[in-house]
Design a protein around this nucleic acid. Structure first.
Lengths: 344, 344
DNA sequence: TCATTTGGGTTAAACGTTTAACTAATAATT
DNA sequence: AATTATTAGTTAAACGTTTAACCCAAATGA
């Protein structure tokens, strides 16, 4: 059977209120009593009942984490690592997190996640792009919301994102420093703010360094930024008769697809051109050539989201905040080349 | 504010007990009253408070789902899909699922997941191989346990697994039917029961068809069965001067690594030898050549685990059960060849 | 000296359900 | 007709916390 507060109180020779106050770090209790109570609790292996606590405090102690199916099932563990971060910080803050996965397309008539309907959470974290209709519907429930890696066109939200602009600039400027002038950009899902920001960073870096923008080197028509589409983008790059000595990819998955394609079609080129990805997905980017990339601290995104959300729940930070996690350029083998050779 | 049972009772002109009984599908209430109550509940958008319910019923309504970090962050969405399955069935059965990720190595002194310590779950599902010390410690808490895709050497557990033996036999026998005689097997993490069963199936199929076992064609020394190790295994296969016309891989990830390697080293061979994987991970296996594989219904594994677990919680099925999910051989481009050509 | 404040607790109500025990009305049995 | 059984509900206790309101003793102030 589960130990209750009553038994702890009995053992410590105090009232149950005292036990409760000690556990809630109330200063009204003297250090001595405090110690006695804590010792008794430890000895009895006591953990307060979440249900009882929730019932009276009107807080469930749960957070919701929402992911679309395509984000959750993505090959690279990007959003799953973000989830890991939320779990770590939720633990620190004594919350539990419910992960739920919704369909990637959202219809007006679709219902909201069960934990919203049943009001079984105190706040909700949404990672990646989701339908605006979903957000609008959700807002009506008056639950604190934090978005990760997505900025809706309309509406005011607490948001945690990585520094896409700065990351892209550092990548492209590194190419330029190496001597590259003909730098391509490949991307999928350009409607996602993070991706379009990376394109913006690419353009900004070129402009800042007085390099003419060449639109035929910008490939953004692909749907999902995955390995297969990276392969297709590479095929296209090979087919156009333009000078290209470096490729900046909107993420590592596409960069891997690019490398796959070159291995298939023109293996010799791999030693000659330069490639930078984005995200630093760790697995599968450490094979020949290892991939230079803009590293995103995924755990941090999750951690900061929980911090922000809990502040919102507790009533601090009534105003919505935007937190930007810095990125870092990581250099590996795929950026050994100086712009002398070209794809075509 | 949240609607309570009181307000529903008031609106339906009955006692709160009646509302509760209706919602719990008790037959003591007449169909008419039943309807009135349900209508009132619907109109008031009423959902019972989980906390209150949990408090009195001594059941949290939560299930725990445990995954090791390396399983969770794996490139192929295998265990994540299993989680999806548990979520679907938990929904049907009115449970919530807490997903938690633990370190891949477990030390005796490591603590158990928080939801176990705090007794915030009614049952627990563990997917993939975990340390036996962890299971032993867990058992002491007397929480119903269901394992997915893992059979511990000692101890009695409720288990859900896929049919590894039958799947492997069907793959290898298909090779044989095509005319292959020199069939290699590559694997990682051979200590995992599912992997060693696949090896057993491979051997069984050869024996059944009177093909001599050649141990130099069996490569199982790799740690994790991932793409990179598939690549390494392929390098090794290329280096030994043995006839090999077909390769059975312990999973799709290794098969993809094998294909990667052939693309790098001997692209022409890809059209000549045959390859079969295991799992059917869907993404990235649909590029040249598309991968033949033994399909595992991952969703089903999760669904069946929840069914089994809930039965255990509810006190049916006191005895531990083993559920075996059938597999299916899926033929794609990687098995077009008949054994005439060889790797070396 | 008496009134007031402070420190360190306790008491008891409340949170929203479930469910055993009860009741009243009707139906079935003898 | 009297007794018993059944049907369809109600009453009230219980679950394990939190917390506002209260209390008493000791310290402080005038």
């Amino acid at each position: 059977m589960k130990t209750t507060i009553k038994e702890v109180a009995l053992k410590a020779n105090v009232s149950i209120a005292t036990v409760s106050l000690v556990l809630n770090k109330n200063t009204r209790i003297s250090p001595q009593t405090r110690e006695t109570v804590l010792k008794a609790a430890r000895k009895l292996n006591y953990y307060p009942s979440r249900s009882a606590r929730a019932l009276v405090s009107k807080q469930t102690g749960n957070l919701g984490f929402v992911l679309t199916k395509d984000h959750f099932l993505r090959t690279e563990p990007f959003y799953t690592k973000i989830f890991l971060g939320t779990e770590i910080e939720a633990n620190n803050k004594d919350y539990y997190v419910f992960l739920t996965v919704m369909n990637s397309v959202y219809n007006e008539s679709d219902s909201l996640p069960r934990f919203v309907l049943e009001k079984n959470i105190d706040g909700i974290i949404i990672a990646g792009k989701v339908a605006d209709a979903f957000l609008v519907k959700l807002k009506k429930y008056n639950i604190p919301i934090v978005l990760i890696d997505y900025i809706p066109k309309k509406g005011d939200y607490s948001i945690v994102i990585m520094d896409n602009i700065q990351g892209s600039i550092s990548a492209v400027e590194y190419f330029i420093k190496l001597g590259h002038k003909n730098i391509a950009f490949i991307a999928g899902d350009i409607s996602h703010p993070s991706i379009s920001e990376r394109l913006r960073g690419y353009k900004l870096a070129l402009k800042r360094n007085k390099i003419m923008l060449n639109n035929s080197l910008i490939l953004t028509k692909y749907s999902s930024p995955n390995r297969t589409n990276g392969y297709k983008a590479a095929e296209h790059l090979l087919s156009i008769s333009k000078k290209i000595s470096a490729v900046f990819c909107c993420n590592d998955a596409m960069a891997l697809g690019l490398i796959d394609c070159l291995k298939d079609k023109k293996p010799s080129l791999l030693k000659k051109i330069s490639i930078i990805g984005f995200d630093d997905i760790e697995e599968d980017t450490r094979v020949s050539p290892t991939l230079s990339t803009v590293k995103v601290n995924k755990i941090d995104l999750g951690v900061e989201a929980v911090k922000l959300l809990v502040n919102n729940i507790k009533g601090k930070n009534i105003t919505n905040k935007k937190i930007i996690i810095p990125t870092e350029l990581i250099l590996r083998e795929s950026t050994r080349n100086n712009g002398k050779y070209n794809l075509n």
